[in-house]
């Protein structure tokens, strides 16, 4: 059987999610044995022509060039998987969606005239059809391997959309909100990170984005009871998944 061709594409992002793939040290050789890395500039200079069986897309769309390029990627990909908060939600850079972009550009760059950027940072799914989404900033390596493994044998990957709380409870982690009064986004946040923050004694800060139908107002009220100011409650939802939380913050999404 011919090996499936895998491509990894980068849009506006920090490369951290692609690194998660390289970070699969123990499994990387097996992956390399099962697929051809046809296009993965972070790892190899070799470039094979499309079409590709599996495309992993990192990053959001923030420039006119990216608007066009994502269409080309889609056309060449049988299965397109977005990886990480940038690709699935617009990333931290979607903060510009709530501000005047020119103000940012003028503040940050010495030569603003060289910058060609869009007003907004948008997730890949707003431009093309996406087959699977891997959440997180960065993605969870087990979820990535689970997804690749599933595709290789032709089954559905296990990527639950439920709350982070369920992950905590299943691993026996004590609820930081109930037992310590710490603010936590777990009840509205998508599971999948492997329970990182609550298991080291801090609240979830939402890097996997909103869970299925999150009840943000109900949690916001609780965060207020726990002493968060209005500004803090606003800011805590304006991070890696800012644009995704903004869409659901007024009620069940």
């Amino acid at each position: 059987m011919k090996k499936p061709k895998l491509a990894v594409w980068k849009f506006s992002s920090c490369d951290g999610c692609q690194l998660s793939l390289l970070d699969c040290e123990d499994e990387l050789l097996t992956v390399a044995d099962k697929v051809d890395f046809a296009y993965f500039l972070e790892a190899t200079r070799a470039k094979l022509k499309g079409p590709y069986d599996i495309s992993l897309v990192e990053g959001s769309v923030t420039t006119p060039e990216e608007v066009e390029r994502i269409q080309k990627v889609r056309k060449q990909s049988k299965v397109l998987i977005t990886i990480g908060a940038c690709a699935t939600a617009g990333g931290i850079q979607s903060l510009k969606n709530f501000a005047n972009v020119d103000d940012f550009i003028n503040t940050v760059y010495a030569h603003p005239e060289f910058i060609d950027t869009l007003e907004t940072s948008t997730p890949i799914a707003e431009h093309v059809k996406v087959d699977l989404e891997l959440r997180g900033c960065p993605i969870d390596k087990r979820q990535l391997l689970e997804t690749l493994g599933a595709l290789l044998v032709g089954r559905k990957p296990n990527l639950p959309n439920h709350s982070q709380c369920m992950e905590c409870k299943m691993s026996g982690t004590v609820c930081v909100m109930v037992a310590k009064g710490q603010p936590c986004l777990g009840p509205i946040c998508h599971a999948g990170c492997g329970n990182i923050c609550p298991s080291i004694d801090r609240g979830c800060y939402g890097c996997f984005g909103p869970k299925e139908l999150p009840n943000v107002p109900a949690l916001t009220e609780k965060l207020s009871d726990l002493g968060m100011t209005k500004k803090q409650r606003h800011d805590v939802l304006r991070t890696f998944n800012a644009a995704a939380f903004a869409k659901v913050e007024n009620g069940h999404g």
Binding site: C165, K169, A218
Partner: peptide, 11 residues
């Protein structure tokens, strides 16, 4: 309106 559908109660 109050319930987070988080599933904690069931677990």
């Amino acid at each position: 309106k109050r319930c987070l559908d988080c599933g904690n109660c069931t677990f």
